[in-house]
Amino acid sequence: MKMKANKNLLKTRTSPVMTVFLVLVALIQLFPLYWMFMFSLKDNKEIFGANPMGLPRAWQWGNYSKIFTAGNMGLYLLNSVIVTASTILLTLLLSAMATYAIVRMKWKLSKLVYNIFLVGMMLSVQAVMLPLYINLQPILSTHWALILPYVAFAMPQAILLMVGSLEALPKEMEEAAFIDGANIYRLFYVIILPMLAPILSTVAILTFLSSWNEYMLALVFISTDKLKTVTVGVNDMVGKYSTKWGVVGAGLTVATLPTLIMYALLSKNITNSLAMGAVKG
C-alpha cells in the first residue's frame, strides 16, 4: 500500500464509492458557478434554446463591457474597495490598540472593558438596524454609513483573537525597548504591531470576507446609486437587465472575481483564518 507523506489520519485506501461521492459533491458545488460563467458569455438565443449548458458558440464579451458602460459596475467595485479597505484598516488599528491596553497595561477596569467587547459576539445587525438607520441619518449618503457599523461589528472578534494571541507572546522585547527608553506609543508601533502580524492577517481576511459580502446593512443604509457596494449594486443591475441573461451573468461573475482571485492566491490563509475565527467564535 502506498503511504502518503502528508498526515494521513487513517492510512487506508479510499473506496470507489467515496470517490464517486466526492466527485458528485464537487460537481454540485461547482456546476452552478460554471453555468453562470458560461451564460455570461452567451446571448439569449443560445441560453434559451440552442445551447444552455455548453461552451459559448459565439463569445459575447460585449456583456462584460456593458456592465461597466451601461451598468455602474466599476463604481460599485470602487465603493466596495473603499468601504472594505477602510473597515479593515480601522478594525486592525483600533482592535490592536485596545488589545494592547487590555493585555499589557495595568488598570482596574481592563477585565470589564474586555467583557464589554465580548458581549458584541452575541449581537447581530438585526438588533441595531433600525436605531442605526435613525442615528446615522446625517451620514447615510456617505461611505461612513457602512464603515461605522462594519468596524463596530468586526471589533469584538478581532479583539478576542488578538488578546489570545498577545497573551501568548513573551514580554522580553517590550521590556528591552522600555529599558532603551522607548515611549509606549512608539513601542506599540514598532514592537507590538509587527509581533501581532500573523493574527492581524487572520483578522484582515475575516473582515474582508464579512464586509465585502455584507448585504443587509448595505441594502438598508445606502439609497443613492453612486454609493452602492457590489452586493447591492449587482442585485439592482440584475433587476434592471433581468431579461438579458448574458449581462446578468457578466455582472455576477465580475462581482465574484475579487473574492475568487483572493481565494486562489491565499486559499490556505483564508481557510486557516476561518477555522481559527470559528474556534474563537
Binding site: M97, A98, F117, L123, L148
Partner: peptide, 25 residues
C-alpha cells in the same frame, strides 16, 4: 493618558454603534 489613548477609540466606537443601539431597540 496612554491607557485612554489606546482603549477609548475602540470602546467609544463599539459602544456607540453596536451596544447602545441595542438598548435603543
Amino acid at each position: 493618558k496612554a491607557i485612554l489613548f489606546f482603549v477609548l477609540p475602540a470602546l467609544i466606537w463599539f459602544v456607540a454603534i453596536a451596544l447602545l443601539p441595542v438598548l435603543q431597540s
